[in-house]
Amino acid sequence: MQRIINALIQYRNSILYFFLLSCSILFLSKKSKYHKTQLEAYGMYATKELYNLNYELLNYFNLKKKNEELLKENRKLKELHLKSNSLALYPNAFGEKRRFPFKLKEANVIKNSFLNQRNNLIIDKGSVDGIKNEMGVISKNGIIGIVNSVSKNYSRVISILNQEIKINVRLKKSNALGSMYWKGLNPLEFKIEDVINNVSFKKGDTIITGGMSSYFPYGIPLGEVVDFESNSQNGYYTINARLFEDPSLVNYVYILTNEDKKEIKQLQENFKDE
C-alpha cells in the first residue's frame, strides 16, 4: 500500500496531466459537434483495427481445427461425388436403400517418393484405423495408388508412379476400356494401351477409372488425351495421356474401402477352382 501511494506521489504530475487532458477532451467533444464526429471517427477506426487484428489472430490459431473439419466435410462430399460418378454402374444408389460399396477415410501423406521407377508413399493411418492391404488410395483430383503394407499406425502405398502397376481406365465419351501405366519420367505423363481401334475419340477427351477392378469405383476423372496413334498391326491405339493432378505433390488422400471386395474375390477364386 505504501508503495502504491509512493508511486502515486512520484507520478502525480503525469497523473494530474492525463486526468485534466481527458477532462478537456471530454469538454471539447461535448461542446463541438465537429470534434465529436472526428473523435468518433478515429475511435471507430481504432476499434475496427483492433477487432480485425483479434479476428485474424484467432483465425490463425484455429486453422488446424478448421482444416480437420474441412477434411471431414470433403470426405463426405467426395463420397457423394464418387457415388454420383458411378450411377451408371449402380443405378439405384441414390433412390433406394441399395448401398454404394465404397467408403472413404481421410489420411495425411507423410512421405512421398517420385524419383524412382517404383515409388511409394507412407500415410498416417494404419490397422488401428481399419486400413487393410489392397485398399485403393485417391486424392481430390485423381488416384494415388494401392495400399500394400500396413503397420499399427502407418501404411505404405504403392504409387501409380510405378511402371509395374496398370490401371483400368475408360475414355469417358466412348466408354472404351484400356489400361494405363506410367511412362517413367514426368509424373504427369502416362500411356494408355489396349484401346480397340474401332472406337472414335479426339484430343482432350477425359479419361476416367474403369470400374473393372475392385480397387477403384467407376468414374473418377484422371486426366485427358494428349495425342494418340493407331497401330494397324495389332489393332489397338497407343494413347499419351496427361493427369489432372501431379501425384507427387499430394498432401491429403482418401483411402477407399470396398465392402464387396470379399465377395468378388470369393467369386473369382471359385471360378479358378472350377
Binding site: S14, Y17, L20, L21, F27, L28
Partner: peptide, 24 residues
C-alpha cells in the same frame, strides 16, 4: 487559465489542451 480562456471565448477546449500540455 486555459479553461477560463476557453470559457470566455466560446472555443471548445483547444486552449485548455494546448496550455495544459505546455505546462506539463
Amino acid at each position: 487559465l486555459g479553461f477560463s480562456i476557453d470559457f470566455f471565448s466560446q472555443s471548445g477546449g483547444a486552449h485548455t489542451i494546448a496550455t495544459l500540455t505546455v505546462s506539463f
